Simulated assay, not measured.
Amino acid sequence: MSEFYKYFKQNMDALNLPAPESIFGTVQSAVANTTVIVSYIEKLERM
């Protein structure tokens, strides 16, 4: 496991999101995860 994936997985776990092991997860999960991440970013920008 690469160091990047190790930290990526920790961050995704903290957000209760799945972290696919391959670079190509399903399109649906990629879109869903991106939507959640963007919503967190938008919340942080409003603070």
Rank of each mutant, 00 (worst) to 15 (best):
E42Q: 13
D13H: 09
L17F: 01
I23K: 14
I41F: 08
S22P: 00
A14S: 14
A19T: 12
F8V: 00
I37A: 10
F4W: 11
E3Y: 05
F8H: 08
I23R: 14
S29W: 01
P18F: 02
S39Y: 06
K6Q: 10
I41C: 05
V27W: 06
K6C: 03
N33A: 12
D13G: 00
N16M: 03
V36H: 08
A19R: 07
Y5V: 07
E3G: 07
E42G: 08
Q10N: 08
K9Y: 00
D13Q: 11
S29E: 14
K9W: 00
E3Q: 08
F8A: 03
A19W: 08
Q28I: 07
P20G: 09
A30I: 05
K43E: 15
I41A: 06
S29N: 07
E45F: 02
L15P: 01
A32R: 11
K6T: 09
E42D: 13
S39R: 15
K9I: 01
T34L: 13
K9R: 13
K43G: 05
V36R: 04
A14W: 04
T34P: 00
S22K: 12
D13L: 07
A19N: 07
Y5I: 06
A32Q: 10
I23Y: 14
Y5D: 12
T35G: 11
S2K: 07
N33W: 02
V36N: 02
E45W: 01
E3D: 05
S39N: 13
D13E: 13
P18Q: 04
E45Q: 12
R46N: 06
N33G: 10
S39M: 10
K9H: 03
G25S: 15
S39T: 08
E42H: 06
I37P: 03
T34A: 15
P20Q: 03
R46C: 01
G25P: 14
P20I: 03
K43F: 09
I41Q: 03
E45L: 12
A32T: 02
E3H: 10
V36W: 01
Y7I: 06
L17G: 02
Y40Q: 15
L44F: 04
Q28H: 07
E21P: 03
K6D: 06
M1R: 09
S2R: 05
N11M: 09
M47Q: 13
L17P: 01
S22Q: 08
P20C: 03
K43M: 10
M47K: 15
S22D: 13
T26H: 13
R46H: 05
F8Q: 03
S29G: 01
I37M: 15
V36D: 05
S22A: 10
T26F: 13
I37R: 06
Y40E: 14
S39I: 02
E42N: 14
Y5P: 01
E3I: 04
I37T: 02
M12R: 15
Q10S: 09
A14K: 13
F4V: 14
K9P: 01
E45K: 15
V38D: 10
E45A: 13
I37L: 15
F24S: 12
T26G: 14
M1W: 14
S29L: 07
Q10M: 13
S22C: 04
T26P: 04
P18V: 00
Y7A: 02
Y5M: 12
A32H: 04
F4S: 14
A30V: 07
E21G: 13
F24K: 13
R46Q: 11
M12D: 01
F8C: 01
I37G: 02
